[in-house]
């Protein structure tokens, strides 16, 4: 039996992720890994999923989204509420609860993805970008005014009114407190695998080719009978669902979370992962997300200067990678790289 090239590539990809996971897991269980790094394992998984899903929008579908953290925050809070509610109705198994919460987070983020996608995808270019930014900010502002509580198995919601019966789950601007931390690193690994399966299958499918055709030339794609809005929507909503699932995992790994955490800066952070990893390059996103999540931790020795160094590194990397002479040199060294990059960059 002869396998398709994309199938072989996928198998190799999954193999690398599984090996990386096994290495990390052995390092944790044998105690080689430092405590500070161990605490970073779940955020790394979360940001990898965030970066890969945003890459689906920015790289594959070619639309700049500046509000990805908004979907994450929806996932965070619906995941936390879902987890508490599931516990109340008698789902005691933590693993089952975690995965069900992640699904809840994904579903809610997906619903908002559809609602936001309908108006957003009518716009083009920078206008689309600013509207996603606006939606991200609106989500954060509205979450700041929402109060959720649980009374028995009954869920109460109120807007701008903190006095609601039962135990408070989400307390407006103070966010969620005393969340039962049920998220685990293996669950994060499973989420990464799931994301890769979804994204890679989507890219290599008929729909994926339609999405990329719409990115490369909207008018030509429309002329070929591709429903551009439908396929852009598909990429946008898939990314929202994955971000919501990552958000649920993130929320259930922290003792306290506030909506203020998911402001514009977080969206930008994920966008930086995507761009540094290479637009449209899934593997680049994974590596960039993992390295850049750990980097501030590694730069801890520089204390106050670390964000400054981060900024300078960011500017220098952008200047060097976009320098024509450097690019020519790189494409000589790695012939495939230059071609792949210009393919993704051309759409933006």
């Amino acid at each position: 039996m002869k396998l398709k090239k994309s199938t072989i590539n996928n198998i190799i990809s999954f193999g690398i992720v599984i090996i990386a996971f096994i290495i990390c897991q052995t390092m944790i269980s044998t105690g080689v890994m430092k405590r500070s790094l161990k605490g970073q394992m779940i955020p790394i998984c979360v940001y990898i999923v965030m970066a890969v899903s945003l890459n689906l929008v920015v790289g594959i579908s070619g639309e700049l989204s500046l509000g990805h953290a908004g979907f994450m925050s929806i996932g965070v809070f619906s995941g936390i509420i879902g987890s508490a509610w599931l516990e109340a109705i008698g789902v005691t198994n933590e693993v089952v609860r975690l995965f069900m919460s992640m699904i809840i987070g994904g579903v809610f983020a997906g619903i908002f993805g559809v609602l936001i996608g309908i108006p957003v995808l009518r716009l083009r270019g920078d206008y689309l970008a600013i509207v996603t930014l606006a939606f991200g900010e609106i989500i954060r502002n509205v979450l700041n005014c929402l109060y959720f509580s649980l009374e028995g198995t009954k869920l109460h919601v109120s807007f701008n009114n903190p006095s609601i019966p039962g135990t408070i789950l989400v307390n407006g601007p103070n966010g969620a407190k005393d969340v039962s931390k049920i998220a685990t690193f293996p669950a994060g690994f499973v989420l990464i695998l799931f994301t890769l399966v979804v994204v890679m299958n989507l890219i290599n499918s008929r729909s994926g080719r339609a999405i990329m055709a719409a990115r490369d030339n909207r008018i030509a794609a429309e002329a070929m009978g591709i429903n551009v809005t439908k396929y852009k929507m598909m990429a946008f909503v898939t990314a929202a669902v994955l971000a919501g699932m990552a958000g649920a995992l993130y929320g259930l790994s922290m003792a306290t979370v506030t909506a203020a955490k998911f402001k514009f800066d977080t969206s930008i952070l994920v966008l930086v992962f995507v761009v540094l990893g290479g637009i449209g390059n899934i593997w680049g996103s994974i590596i960039a997300a993992a390295l850049l999540t750990v980097l501030p931790e590694l730069l801890r020795a520089f204390a106050d200067y670390r964000m400054l160094i981060y900024a300078i590194v960011l500017i220098l990397v952008m200047l060097v990678t976009n320098n024509p002479t450097m690019r020519a040199l790189l494409s000589k060294l790695i012939p495939r790289r230059g071609g792949a990059q210009s393919k993704g960059g051309a759409a933006l």
Binding site: L271, V275, A311, I312, L314, M318, N322, L348
Partner: peptide, 16 residues
Amino acid sequence: AAKLAVLITAIGVSYL
């Protein structure tokens, strides 16, 4: 360069 590269550089300058 690509538009996104300029955007990220602008964000880098903002952080700086």
